[in-house]
Design a protein around this nucleic acid. Structure first.
Lengths: 219, 219
DNA sequence: ATTTAATTCAAACGACTGTTTGAAACAGGC
DNA sequence: GCCTGTTTCAAACAGTCGTTTGAATTAAAT
């Protein structure tokens, strides 16, 4: 396996370009030119562009999801019989994801990549992502319901949906806000982001449910 | 102007297809085949595909933003000197946007379209959207800060960001959640969605700010 | 009816896409 | 050295893309 770095170079370059411009907007020829490898190498090592996209995502996302589930299991073990605190739950979900921003090796490059995935319209990619996230969705979904005994399942689902939106949007447009507010995108500031996101979403989860508007007044 | 409906047919068909598959994923040839017009008609009436995309978006989004600002102005007038209530503010922002879901003419088709725009990576499209939304962002941004005297500007900006994420994600994947929870996507149910979104985001805005874990001074 | 302008049409343009091919270059085992 | 399997390479394939062209058609104005 002497020159297997070809595979890695494709992965790294593709990740960088995908994050910057999107999956469909970056052609294979753009990637192989930047990575200085042959065009056919992509199909030799990955089989297709779609498979390359999946590989790029899975390489980063899988460890994150594993860490999420591990942290959740650990928190559960520590809590014993007591119900998990909502903030603790959100921390298990957010921290492994946002921590990659602090990693100087991956840098903010990957953060946008993951955020990008959620907004992607590609049908196949969506299926793939749902498969990758299935465990996380199931485990955390159940945990949220358990941590919010006052909410109906329907209401809890909606709020999980809102939370996911806030999370994805934050990850995807992190730089946008930073430039907008002038805040310094200090790499280690991911903790502040996580803290803010937990504050916001935890309060959202716990919000009092406003009853439907009473009998209609005139239109 | 007898057969000017060619222009409208292109606009309507493009909107439908864009909403379903995304802007880049739908080719002009797909549109003109469904609309039963000639390929060159698109360039004759709009000039380019990008201009068509802009026209499709602006046709729907402009009235929405005008209504948002009108509602905000009205609320301000009614409140007089008193500060605007946060829920009222959010209602001005959400309702005009989600109300289109109830319109049987546009239907949920357009809802996904607008939601889709926010997740789009296209550089030019992003600039265009920022231009369309500039007034709304400025006006509501200031209003949010005024309604949240206890928050620093930085914190208020972050939470506006989270709110925008929840809003966009909800609009974009509305059908996804409906299918997931089995809730009926009754057209008139947009009011329930708006209510839920206001509950969640208002509580998020009002959340207590957790101080950093270490006794670290802020900058 | 003739002229003028607005609109539609079929056909092609050049550039780009993901993918495939078959021959080279290379590796390590014998 | 030869041989075997892995990896790289230039070239082409078969489409699709947005855009342009110039003539044909239609509508309106004179």
């Amino acid at each position: 396996m002497a020159k297997t770095d070809t595979k890695s170079r494709i992965l790294d370059t593709a990740e960088r370009l995908f994050a910057r411009k999107g999956f469909d907007a970056v052609s294979l020829r753009t990637i192989i030119a930047a990575a200085k490898v042959n065009l056919a190498a992509v199909h030799y090592h990955f089989g297709s562009k779609q498979a390359l996209v999946h590989a790029v995502i899975a390489r980063r996302l899988r460890p994150i999801n594993e860490e999420r589930l591990a942290k959740l299991a650990e928190a559960r073990a520590k809590a014993g019989r007591r119900p998990l605190k909502l903030e603790r739950l959100l921390d298990c979900l957010f921290r492994p994801l946002f921590r990659v921003q602090a990693d100087p090796k991956t840098g903010p490059t990957f953060a946008r990549l993951v955020g990008r995935v959620m907004g992607e319209r590609n049908e196949g990619l969506h299926k793939f992502m749902m498969g990758e996230l299935a465990d996380v969705i199931i485990q955390f979904g159940a945990a949220f319901e358990a941590a919010l005994p006052g909410l109906t399942k329907e209401e809890a689902d909606w709020r999980s949906h809102f939370m996911a939106g806030a999370m994805a949007h934050t990850l995807c447009n992190a730089d946008l806000l930073v430039r907008f507010t002038g805040t310094d995108a200090d790499a280690s500031d991911y903790e502040a982001t996580v803290r803010r996101l937990i504050d916001f979403t935890a309060a959202g989860f716990r919000a009092k449910v406003t009853p439907p508007t009473r009998p209609r007044k005139k239109k």
